[in-house]
Simulated scan of single mutants.
Amino acid sequence: MSWIDPSARDPSSPKNIRVDGRRLRSERTKQLIIEAYLAIIRENRQTPVPTAADIAKRAGYSVRSIFERFPDLHTLRVAAADYALAHAAALAPARDIDGDRATRIRSYVETRAGTCERGISLWRALLFNVDENDDLKIRIKVARNRTIERMELMYRPELTALDAAERRKTLIALEAITDIESWARLRDMYGLSFADGCAAWIAAIDRILPPTPEGAPLS
Rank of each mutant, 00 (worst) to 15 (best):
D5W: 05
R9Y: 12
P11R: 10
P11E: 08
P14D: 07
P14V: 02
P14L: 03
R23I: 09
S26V: 02
R28Y: 07
K30I: 03
L32K: 15
I34C: 03
E35W: 03
Y37N: 08
L38E: 01
A39L: 11
E43S: 14
K57R: 15
K57Y: 10
R58G: 01
S65Q: 11
F67T: 03
R69E: 07
D72F: 07
D72G: 00
T75D: 10
V78P: 02
A80N: 08
Y83V: 00
I105S: 03
I105Q: 03
E117G: 02
E117Y: 14
L122M: 13
L127G: 04
V130H: 10
E132V: 00
R139D: 04
R139T: 01
V142C: 00
R144H: 06
R146V: 03
L153A: 13
M154Y: 10
Y155Q: 08
L162M: 10
A164V: 13
A165N: 13
K169I: 07
T170S: 10
L171W: 05
A173W: 03
A176V: 04
A176N: 12
A176G: 15
D179K: 01
A184Q: 14
R187N: 03
G197W: 06
C198A: 06
C198N: 11
C198D: 05
W201Q: 13
A204N: 08
P213T: 02
E214V: 12
A216D: 04
S219D: 15
